[in-house]
């Protein structure tokens, strides 16, 4: 079996990878995938916590299901936004998209 340490490490790597993708990728779709990665890292954390600390409780499962739902919704809404961005700006490069005048 995996140790808790191993699981948390993998989840950490996933999270950091997702965060890195989110903040460095210029492609909006890639950034969205980064968010997905981070959400899944959290899911992994929940599951690990359930397995090693509270095997008798169901909180973690609820949370994981919720996250999956939210992730699906987010992907749908996010992709819709990206589609609209593409229509408006003709690109999905985040660096090129500026609405605020700073």
């Amino acid at each position: 079996m995996f140790s808790i340490t191993g699981l948390l490490t993998i989840s950490g790597i996933l999270f950091v990878a997702g965060a890195a993708a989110l903040i460095t990728r210029r492609n909006a779709v890639a950034a969205l995938m980064g968010v997905e990665l981070m959400l899944n890292a959290a899911n992994l954390n929940f599951v690990a916590g359930w397995r090693y600390f509270w095997p008798e409780r169901l909180d973690a499962h609820v949370a994981v299901l919720l996250v999956i739902t939210v992730a699906a919704a987010e992907a749908a809404v996010g992709l819709a936004i990206i589609l609209n961005l593409y229509r408006k700006f003709g690109t999905v490069d985040l660096e090129q998209i500026r609405l605020m005048r700073g």
Binding site: A19, R25, R26, A31, L94, E95, I97, R98, M100
Partner: peptide, 17 residues
């Protein structure tokens, strides 16, 4: 800060991180 917070999304996210 103005440049960052009014700039493109990756910059803002990098700043937040």
């Amino acid at each position: 800060m103005r440049r960052v917070s009014a700039g493109p999304l990756p910059g803002q996210l990098q700043y937040a991180a």
